[in-house]
Simulated assay, not measured.
Amino acid sequence: MSEENSFGLTEFQLSDLLKTNPKVTICDLRKKEDFAKGHIKKSLLAKFDEEKLLDVSQTSKVVLVSYDEKQAKEMASALRSHGFDTYYLIGGMRNWTLGLYCTNVSYVGTGYP
Rank of each mutant, 00 (worst) to 15 (best):
N104E: 11
A36R: 08
V56T: 15
Q71P: 05
Y101S: 08
T86K: 07
L54F: 02
E33R: 12
L29K: 08
L17C: 07
V56E: 05
C102E: 14
S6G: 07
V62P: 06
M75K: 14
G111L: 12
D68A: 08
S15A: 11
S66G: 10
F35Y: 15
L98E: 05
N95I: 04
L14E: 05
D85Q: 14
S81M: 12
T25N: 01
L53Y: 03
L53D: 06
C102M: 10
L14H: 03
S43G: 06
K52T: 15
E74Q: 13
L18V: 10
A76S: 12
F84M: 13
A46M: 10
R30I: 15
S66A: 13
P22D: 11
G109V: 15
Q13V: 12
D34S: 14
S106A: 10
K37I: 09
F7C: 04
T103H: 05
I90Q: 12
K42D: 11
K41G: 00
L9C: 06
N21C: 09
T103V: 14
S77D: 07
K41V: 09
Y88K: 05
Y112R: 14
V65N: 04
D28C: 10
E50M: 07
S66K: 03
S43V: 01
G8F: 01
L14R: 03
H39Y: 09
N5Y: 11
T25M: 01
P113M: 10
V65H: 02
D34E: 14
L45S: 09
M1D: 10
E33A: 13
D68P: 01
Y107D: 14
K42E: 08
L17M: 15
K52I: 13
D49Y: 05
E50Q: 11
T103E: 13
